[in-house]
Write a protein that binds this DNA or RNA. Structure first.
Lengths: 114, 114
DNA sequence: CGGAATCCGCCAAGATACTG
DNA sequence: CAGTATCTTGGCGGATTCCG
């Protein structure tokens, strides 16, 4: 290993630069196998502003991790699902969520919050 | 699910707030099963400034994910290893690195860089 | 309903220089 | 060698308002 020349030679850097950040993993995990509307996502997730959610969704779409489907009805309706690329992330997200549910993680967080 | 009241009720939020961020996963993955000195870490990792590396290591130690051992010799020597908590993260890190090595990830990154 | 457009504060992160 | 000490800055993220 020697990633100095190009940071992206590091697999973890590569992965985290794609789905890392404060909101992306949460969004991806929330969508999961289902198909969610903008408003529904907003409800399911920890507090996130419209703008940020909107931006993140756009980025995720550009990255090819999610797909946006717009239904032309009287009241505008949009649904987000994981693309195949996005689905390939599910094992990773599960592993993360799984660890997040461990007592280890819970204990550390309660210490952090103090 | 409804994490609005308390964000930390979301397992992914919990996990990422612990080992997420730009550098923490990379550092943890670099250390892995081995025992690394400060300078060695600096070499192995993508370019990171002294200050940031120092800060991150301190935080990781506070979180209880790594252990710092100082050897009193003529030239000062410090080694960092994963604690048991830190080791419990290895499957997660492996999954992340693994995905980072996938063609999916590599392709996305090359698109991003453009 | 699902955003877009502004405006803005703040702090993570970097550059650089220095030290026990 | 393994860090501090300072100073500086980009851009992430939030609040609010407006729109088709």
């Amino acid at each position: 290993m020697r990633y100095i020349e190009n940071p992206y030679d590091c697999p973890v850097t590569r992965a985290m630069s794609i789905f890392g950040g404060k909101w992306k993993p949460i969004i991806l995990n929330c969508i999961g196998e289902s198909s969610l509307r903008f408003g529904k996502l907003n409800q399911l997730m920890p507090a996130i502003s419209n703008k940020v959610l909107s931006n993140e969704l756009k980025e995720l779409e550009t990255l090819g991790l999610i797909e946006r489907k717009e239904f032309k009805e009287r009241s505008q309706r949009v649904e987000y699902t994981l693309s195949d690329s996005g689905k390939s992330l599910m094992p990773v997200l599960h592993e993360i969520a799984n660890w997040g549910n461990s007592n280890q993680a819970k204990k550390i967080v309660t210490e952090m919050v103090k």
